[in-house]
Simulated scan of single mutants.
Amino acid sequence: MSDIRFDGRVAIVTGAGGGLGRCHALELARRGAKLVINDLGASMDGTGGNSAAAEAVVKEIEALGGEAIANGSSVADEKGVQKMIDDTMSKFGRIDILIANAGILRDKSFSKMTQADIDLVIDVHLRGSFMPIHAAWNIMKEQNYGRLVVTTSSTGLYGNFGQANYGAAKLGVVGMMNTLKIEGAKNNIKINAVCPIAATRMTEGLMPQAVLDQLKPEYVTPGVMNLVKDDAPSGLILSAGAGAFSMARIVETEGAFVGHGDALTAEAVAAKWDQITDTSKTRPAFQSGAEHGQNIFALVAAGTTA
């Protein structure tokens, strides 16, 4: 198997001043990429900020013999995002890889969550993924090449107490990915999602130290390299942590046709509930919303001709 290399590629990693983003950036640099290290340098709740963390990672990359620049823009600020893109193009002339990794937490039970807690988390995680990708999209189209990674979470996929805001944003990036895998296909733009479990600033205090010791952020990065390589997949959700990897998918049961007209009642649906929710019979994952619709009409056709 040949080595995975990124020679001649230019990569932007957001939230790369520490944790997962730093590990992704360093590994890309080791494998030949030129880097833009974006980090606002804020606290976990999004307050404060300075460029020291990003500059430190740039120095690490330079010590490896690589090339990198720092950018302190907020991914939730439109002008800041455009500056990040402009700085990249001015220095390197292209954008091949963008890993949307920046994140914050405002954990509270739903009844205690404020509108500010909701808005800020969605701004950073969802809009903070959408805006950099949108700003780089036409550049990648013109190049006929792009590799994108969004960062989802088990909270978005499965839920977690006290993180309704975070979960909504993290599942939102999967919805964006599912559309962009379709729109980017003709221009060789591929997009995937990583669902990491790692010991970072955002997970300190949430798990026992013995568990955190196994969840080094660098144990996630090898999977991410496979999501941005030349022959990467597209539209895949990769779960990664402690050196273990799996693929997460949204699937549907085989389902059932219940009826039309007077025959279609709540009671009729209830009578077929076990068949509708029978997880022993699932369909292959749909590749688009259109396939989902086609499946519904296939159920109708099968049911009305039986």
Rank of each mutant, 00 (worst) to 15 (best):
S109Y: 15
E291Q: 13
P222S: 11
N38H: 03
N165I: 06
A285L: 04
L64F: 09
K141H: 02
S43C: 08
A169T: 04
G128N: 02
R94P: 08
F92M: 02
G167K: 00
Y158K: 11
A54H: 02
R30E: 13
L264W: 14
K190D: 07
N226W: 03
G93M: 03
L180H: 07
E27F: 01
S288C: 06
G93R: 04
D119M: 04
D278T: 10
A16D: 04
A164M: 10
A232F: 05
L98G: 04
V58L: 08
E291D: 12
L105G: 06
N101V: 10
F130S: 08
R22Y: 08
G175Y: 05
H24M: 11
M225C: 06
V121S: 04
T179C: 15
A135L: 07
I133G: 00
L212C: 04
S153K: 00
S129W: 01
C195Q: 10
L227V: 07
G293Q: 12
M177A: 01
Q82I: 07
V124H: 02
V13M: 05
Q214W: 03
P132Q: 01
L215P: 09
K34I: 07
H134P: 09
F245G: 00
A198W: 09
A33G: 05
S234T: 15
I12L: 01
A232I: 03
T265L: 10
D3C: 07
D7S: 05
E218N: 12
L157D: 09
I191P: 04
L105I: 13
N187A: 10
R9K: 15
V57F: 07
I296M: 14
A256L: 13
I122Y: 11
D117E: 06
L206C: 05
V173D: 00
E204R: 13
D77Y: 00
M89H: 01
T277H: 14
D274Q: 14
D45Q: 08
A248M: 13
M1D: 12
Q294P: 06
P233H: 02
G8V: 08
G159K: 13
D86Y: 11
K141R: 13
I37Q: 02
Q275E: 15
A52F: 13
A270M: 14
D86Q: 10
K170Y: 02
L105F: 07
L40M: 10
H125G: 02
G128H: 01
A169S: 11
G303R: 11
D278V: 05
G32A: 03
M202Q: 00
V269P: 11
W273K: 14
S154V: 14
F257G: 00
G48F: 04
K181E: 09
T265M: 04
E204T: 15
C23A: 13
L64D: 07
A54M: 12
V269K: 07
H125K: 06
K112H: 13
G93K: 09
A56F: 06
Q209Y: 13
V36T: 02
G156A: 04
E218T: 09
K91R: 15
V58W: 06
G162M: 03
P222G: 10
A56D: 05
D123E: 04
V121E: 10
S51M: 14
D262G: 11
V121K: 10
M207T: 06
G93N: 09
D87C: 09
A54W: 01
A268V: 11
A11I: 08
A290R: 14
P222M: 00
V228T: 10
Q209V: 15
A268D: 09
S234R: 08
A63R: 12
D39F: 01
T114E: 12
A68D: 02
L215K: 01
V173Q: 00
W273A: 15
